[in-house]
């Protein structure tokens, strides 16, 4: 589904990603972990097509297609979704309006008929339960005045509604208390299925107690320094990033 080959990317002339190789197949959950500044958030933004980041080398393939030249909206319509670490506020634009426009633009892309507001309303209501969201949220402005937890749940609601092939979850767990973390994680579990790929970017292991990754990658200084199964996350939690990374460096020497 997603194949990243020797990816280098920079922002404002500073290289952040220094040769990432990664492949995600349908049905797989990959966790990318790493200390602050390792480039893990950048990785998700670059895949989603953030215009501030420039790919200087390497390729990103989505379903066999090189997506480097595609704008973020084109990638989104192909089926790539980025759940933001810091969801953006859009005053005056209701959640339902945004989701309907987005959903219909994706449908148009696939030559499907647009859903009218009433049909969409039914459709979106079915999804609310996934993140235990009150229908009142639909009429509120996008993330405007939302608590941290509400913002993250809203991201997962959008994920459920837009139903992408690849979900990039950028520190979806950050800033959540344990109850909210549970709701969000369970929501993700309900959405993921054998046809979807998930890239879960996180600093902490705790979300992996709820969402079981198939693979864990440790990112350091723009490179994946170690990959393994779900047990790697536990090892990270127990030993800390420094020890793991040092041991990697040791091996390399």
């Amino acid at each position: 589904m997603l194949k990243i080959v020797n990816l280098h990317a920079e922002v404002d002339g500073t290289e952040i990603l220094k040769g990432i190789n990664l492949e995600i197949k349908a049905g797989e959950v990959h966790a990318v972990m790493g200390p602050n500044g390792s480039g893990k958030s950048t990785l998700s933004k670059v895949i989603a097509g953030h215009p501030a980041y420039e790919v200087t080398k390497g390729e990103i393939y989505f379903e066999g297609k090189n997506i480097e030249e595609l704008a973020a909206d084109e990638r989104a319509r192909l089926g790539i979704f980025l759940a933001f670490q810091y969801p953006v506020e859009i005053p005056g634009v209701s959640n339902s309006m945004l989701m309907r426009q987005a959903y219909n633009s994706i449908r148009r892309e696939h030559g499907e008929e647009e859903m009218d507001p009433l049909e969409f309303d039914d459709y979106v209501h079915q999804k609310l339960d996934i993140v235990e969201m009150d229908p009142k949220f639909l009429d509120r402005s996008v993330n405007d005045g939302f608590s941290g937890g509400e913002k993250k749940r809203n991201e997962i609601l959008q994920l459920a509604v837009l139903n992408p092939k690849l979900a990039l979850l950028d520190e979806t767990d950050s800033g959540l208390d344990i109850d909210a973390l549970k709701i969000v994680s369970e929501g993700i579990n309900k959405i993921k299925d054998s046809s979807k790929g998930v890239l879960l970017v996180t600093h902490y292991q705790r979300i992996l107690n709820y969402i079981t990754p198939d693979y864990v990658h440790v990112l350091k200084d723009g490179r994946i320094v170690k990959s393994g199964g779900k047990e790697l996350a536990l090892q990270l939690e127990a030993d800390g990033y420094d020890n793991i990374i040092e041991s990697v460096n040791g091996e390399a020497k």
């Binding site: 097509g49 215009p51 704008a71 909206d73 859009i90 987005a102």
Partner: peptide, 18 residues
Amino acid sequence: QIFYLQSRGLDEEDAVSL
């Protein structure tokens, strides 16, 4: 804001006008 809306599938002009 524009990137947020684009990453939901809206093209740039639709994002801005929204």
